[in-house]
Amino acid sequence: MMRTSFQRFAAGFAAVFVCMVLPAHGAPILNGGFESGFSHWTRADMVGGDGGFLIQSGTASPVNGIPVPPPPEGVNAAMTDAQGPGSHVLYQDFVAAEQVSLATLSFDLFIGNRAVDFFLPAPASLEFATPELNQQARVDILLAGGDPFSVGGDLLLNAFQTQAGDPLVSGYLHVEVDITSLINANLGASLRLRFAEVDNVNIFNFGVDNVAIETIGPIEVPEPAPILLVLAGVAAATLQRRRALRLSGSATPGRPRGA
């Protein structure tokens, strides 16, 4: 019985210890709910276009006052709006400093396309000033430092993109994407999380909120031997004390033990 109880206790202690070295934490996106406006974010609009990403609150789009759902987190969201065609990006650069066991990119998106469909030119482009129809929204991770409108070799991951035939108005949609392998393959590199919207057909409200990257650090299972040795020592000392007490209790009063 004593050995069985000890083994169960040791196994439970080790399991708790392992869980303690695997904390989940958010990293490294800042102000993902836009409650501080566009702090930590960068906006870029292609020259010659109209509108851009603006802070949206309430239930109306920032420029045209089109009915939209309220921000799903807090009181602010980022949303594109314009009275003419344009190309708009919103991005934040970050660095992954250490290897992870799990990394998840998540965000909430509102899609409010007032055209008859989504249109993606070939080859891929975020250019609005072109004879081709270009009416789309997308979310990407790129190597930082290049053209914010790039869809070339610095593009590492397309996490979301509207497609022809998708519902024209939907959201807020919650999206989660596993980016573990991407993070571990680009340790120390400056990466860019980008939200992009382009429209040259009709108005497009692209809402963004609740942006986060959640990570779990590397699994570091400690050597079980030191833990078990400490527990074994405690158990042995307890057993020895109990034996001493039993011997003391069974001795004849007034007569030395062993006489």
Rank of each mutant, 00 (worst) to 15 (best):
A10T: 08
V175Y: 07
Q99T: 13
I183N: 05
R43L: 07
V198N: 08
G86M: 00
R192D: 01
S39K: 13
P70D: 12
N64S: 13
I111C: 07
A14D: 15
A164G: 14
S248R: 14
A115E: 04
F53N: 06
V95A: 06
R242W: 07
S190W: 10
V175H: 09
T42M: 08
T215S: 11
G171L: 05
P71T: 03
Q135V: 01
A96S: 10
N31V: 04
A196D: 05
A259Y: 15
L22I: 13
V139T: 03
G74A: 00
S101A: 08
L22A: 14
M2R: 13
F149A: 02
T180Q: 03
A244Y: 11
G207H: 09
Y172H: 06
D166L: 04
G145E: 00
A185K: 12
P70L: 09
A244K: 10
R241D: 13
A96G: 10
F206N: 14
F204I: 10
L193M: 05
P72K: 03
F195I: 00
S170P: 11
D178V: 05
F119M: 07
D178A: 03
A124L: 11
G26D: 13
G26K: 12
I55R: 03
T80M: 04
N202R: 11
A185G: 12
V198Y: 09
I219Y: 15
T162C: 00
L90A: 02
G258M: 08
D81S: 04
V100T: 09
S181Y: 13
E127I: 14
P85N: 00
G146E: 09
L157E: 01
A164N: 10
D108K: 05
F110M: 06
A14H: 15
H25I: 15
G84V: 06
I216W: 12
E223G: 11
Q136C: 09
M79L: 06
